Amino acid sequence: MDTLKDVYLDQLKDLHSANTQAREATRALAKAASDDGLRKALEAGVDGIEDGCGKLEKMLAAHGKDAKGEHCKGMEGLVREARAHALKEDFGADAVRDAVIITQYQRMAHYAIAGYGCAAAFASQLGLEDESATLHKMLDAAYSGDESMTELAKSGINAAAA
């Protein structure tokens, strides 16, 4: 990589791979959730992740790049942890599993937040204002998903798990 644009395009590919992996993990977390509000929030998260994948594909295509070919090892680890701790573990109560599901989803969301923030800053520096604006919207959506999980945890799931 020789230029900031090279780094930027690599980050978009990494984000696409991360989203693809997170989408499947989030689907599985939604199926495992017992709280209806949590399940609906996770299903909305899947929709948001799919939307993000499409936007990243369009941005990469505009630069003559294919979204495929990159494999995000960071998200791979987060997905492995989500599956191990939220799906394969045995729980004494559904609310405990739901609390762990929130934890694991938020870890994946924080990865997306970091990636979108960096990519948006790179796009802005490169004068790609439309892409920067799109990435900022995606960043805001990731923050919103994270905040909704915190609200679900505070509004009863953590208390039920305790």
Rank of each mutant, 00 (worst) to 15 (best):
L4V: 05
K5H: 04
K5W: 00
D6W: 01
L9G: 05
D10S: 13
Q11I: 06
K13E: 12
K13I: 02
L15W: 08
L15Y: 08
L15S: 08
L15R: 00
L15E: 07
H16I: 07
H16T: 02
A18T: 12
Q21Y: 05
Q21M: 02
Q21E: 08
A22E: 10
A22W: 02
R23V: 11
R23K: 13
E24M: 08
T26C: 01
A32D: 11
S34F: 07
D35A: 12
A41S: 08
E43P: 06
E43Q: 13
A44V: 04
G45C: 08
G45D: 10
D47L: 07
G48E: 08
G48I: 03
I49V: 11
E50K: 04
D51I: 00
G52D: 03
C53G: 05
L56P: 07
L56F: 07
E57R: 04
K58N: 12
K58C: 03
M59T: 06
A62T: 08
H63T: 03
D66L: 12
A67H: 12
A67S: 14
K68G: 15
G69N: 10
E70F: 07
C72E: 14
K73C: 00
E76H: 01
G77L: 10
L78P: 03
L78G: 07
V79C: 01
R80S: 11
E81S: 09
R83N: 15
A84P: 03
A84C: 04
A84Y: 05
H85R: 13
H85C: 12
K88I: 00
E89T: 13
D90R: 12
F91W: 13
G92I: 10
G92H: 12
A93D: 13
D94V: 14
A95G: 13
A95L: 14
V96K: 15
R97H: 10
R97D: 08
R97G: 01
D98F: 11
A99P: 13
A99K: 11
I101D: 09
M108P: 03
M108N: 05
A109S: 10
A112L: 09
I113S: 04
G117W: 02
A119F: 00
A120Y: 01
F122V: 02
F122L: 07
A123P: 03
S124V: 01
Q125N: 14
Q125C: 11
L126D: 09
L128K: 09
E129Q: 11
E131D: 15
A133L: 11
T134E: 15
H136G: 09
H136D: 13
A142T: 02
A142H: 00
Y143S: 01
G145V: 03
G145W: 04
G145L: 00
E147Y: 11
S148N: 13
S148V: 13
T150D: 14
T150R: 08
L152V: 12
A153I: 06
K154V: 15
A159L: 14
A160N: 11
A162P: 02
